[in-house]
Simulated scan of single mutants.
Amino acid sequence: MKDEDFKGILEGIDDAAAFIGGEKKRANIVAGPDIKALRARANMTQVKFARAYHLPIGTVKDWEQGRRQPDAPARALLTIIEKDPDGVAKALADA
């Protein structure tokens, strides 16, 4: 492991410990896309959206209700869905 990688890990641990301790300013929270708006633009129910894009319905509900944020791969998929919802649905249907 490179020194710079290790340093980054330690900084992340320090930030996490500070966040747990109440120091919210050091938190680096990445906001996810507005799933509900994305789904509304696609004119789909939660169930249809989940099925079309191979997502667990509970995950879609958690995202929409703010209980969870999409991780990096999910954010990437949602970004692609935002750009070409029909193309993504077709590609996943063919898979």
Score class of each variant (00 low, 15 high):
37 A>I: 00
33 P>W: 00
22 G>K: 01
87 G>Q: 06
71 D>S: 03
28 N>D: 05
28 N>K: 11
21 G>Q: 02
93 A>W: 01
48 K>Y: 06
3 D>M: 06
58 G>R: 02
49 F>C: 05
1 M>P: 13
34 D>P: 06
11 E>W: 03
84 D>N: 14
80 I>Q: 14
1 M>E: 07
43 N>M: 09
18 A>S: 08
13 I>E: 13
14 D>T: 02
24 K>H: 04
53 Y>I: 00
12 G>Q: 07
76 A>P: 08
1 M>N: 10
88 V>I: 09
89 A>T: 12
38 L>G: 05
54 H>T: 02
18 A>R: 06
13 I>P: 10
77 L>R: 10
78 L>S: 13
45 T>K: 09
68 R>I: 02
66 G>T: 03
26 R>P: 00
3 D>A: 11
80 I>R: 14
78 L>K: 12
24 K>D: 05
63 W>P: 14
86 D>I: 06
51 R>A: 13
68 R>M: 08
24 K>L: 05
82 E>N: 13
34 D>T: 04
65 Q>I: 09
60 V>R: 03
19 F>Q: 04
64 E>R: 07
28 N>R: 11
17 A>R: 15
55 L>E: 07
85 P>W: 10
61 K>R: 15
84 D>C: 11
79 T>W: 09
94 D>F: 06
17 A>N: 15
